[in-house]
């Protein structure tokens, strides 16, 4: 159900530019207007979302400690898993953001032989996540050649690396394979792992299908249909330099590709894809575990009703006296 809904939405999103781009004069809409809107929505939405998060304070310092604390000098502390200083936090965040440290811990639980609960190491999700994210990053960087003229040197380097094995003609980019394999695994996992399928919402399938759509149209253009690279670059450079032109002869596949990318950009700020910013702000990861060394301030810390020792002694004075406990105030003389 969730999946079908997402598929239908994606098909509609593909149909719009397919049909639209064929209408004379309307190419400016898909080539210029929508891209600018998409980037504006992305930037503004992204910033607003981050500001909204930032507006809520962090009242308590609650890092999840995944290693030994720093206590006695002769006990080796795990600064990257349980940071005791800023360097530790930076290290922990780098591991998390660049290498998905927490996901790397993943295990799979099973009950074997009827009565043995086992936890096997499982790195598939981690590997697919890494493949997808890094593949995507490199592909985005490679795309700078369509926006900057002359093509930046780093892009040439990336292309050289990406073509390293010289397979196929045109030579197949390794990142294309890695990206599609990563996204593909993430989708198949949602469909075939019963637990994951159960929790999956349309908003989980939709971005994956969108990415697959983007990847597929990109691959189509590079390997299967002829597209006019020179015109496309003209459009890209024009967009980035704020002097957009839509050259003749750009194929519909390109407009589908571009439109899906724009949809992705606009979708990000309103979706779970904001995890790309959220991961940096997570208080269980980005705080120093030094609560007993340095006080953390809660901006809304308020006074609460407490039960004082005085009230306590007032209630229990007689029994305390009877038990021989020292008192702050002696009991009033009783009449007997």
């Amino acid at each position: 159900m969730s999946l079908w809904f997402s598929i239908i939405v994606i098909l509609v999103l593909i149909a719009i530019p397919w049909v639209g781009a064929g209408i004379p004069g309307i190419q400016t809409l898909f080539g210029v207007v929508i891209p600018y809107i998409a980037i504006a929505v992305f930037l503004v939405g992204f910033v607003l979302k981050v500001l909204k998060w930032a507006k809520s304070p962090v009242p308590f310092r609650i890092p999840t400690t995944s290693g030994q604390q720093k206590s006695l000098p002769w006990i080796k502390s795990a600064n990257l898993e349980n940071p005791h200083n800023l360097a530790g936090v930076i290290g922990r965040m780098l591991l998390e953001v660049l290498f998905f440290r927490s996901l790397f811990r993943n295990t799979t639980t099973a009950i074997n032989e009827g009565d043995k609960v086992t936890y096997g190491s499982t790195k598939y999700l981690w590997a697919a996540g890494m493949a997808f994210h890094y593949g995507f990053l490199l592909i985005i960087l490679r795309h700078f050649k369509y926006f900057v003229d002359p093509t930046p040197q780093f892009v040439n380097w990336l292309q050289y690396m990406d073509n390293f094995f010289q397979i196929g003609l045109p030579i197949i980019y390794l990142t294309d394979i890695v990206f599609m394999a990563g996204v593909g695994y993430l989708l198949l996992r949602r469909l075939f792992d019963a637990k994951i399928k159960y929790i999956s919402l349309p908003s989980d399938y939709f971005p994956l299908l969108l990415l697959i759509g983007i990847g597929t149209t990109g691959i189509l253009m590079r390997y299967f249909t002829k597209v006019d690279i020179v015109s496309i670059k003209e459009l890209g450079v024009g967009l980035l330099s704020f002097s957009p032109v839509v050259p003749e002869g750009i194929s519909a596949v390109f407009f589908i590709h571009l439109f899906l990318v724009n949809c992705l950009l606009m979708y990000i700020p309103f979706s779970k894809l904001m995890h790309m910013a959220g991961v940096f702000m997570s208080p269980t990861r980005n705080l120093v575990n030094n609560n007993r060394v340095k006080r953390h301030i809660n901006p809304w810390n308020y006074d609460v009703k407490v039960h004082t020792y005085e009230e306590y002694e007032d209630e229990f004075r007689d029994v305390m006296k009877g038990a021989g406990l020292p008192l702050d105030k002696e009991p009033a003389k009783e009449k007997e």
Binding site: L125, K195, D204, K272, G278
Partner: peptide
């Protein structure tokens, strides 16, 4: 806002 429902937590 940030949960992607990857399910890594599921059997933990």
């Amino acid at each position: 806002d940030t949960c992607v429902r990857c399910g890594a937590c599921a059997d933990k």
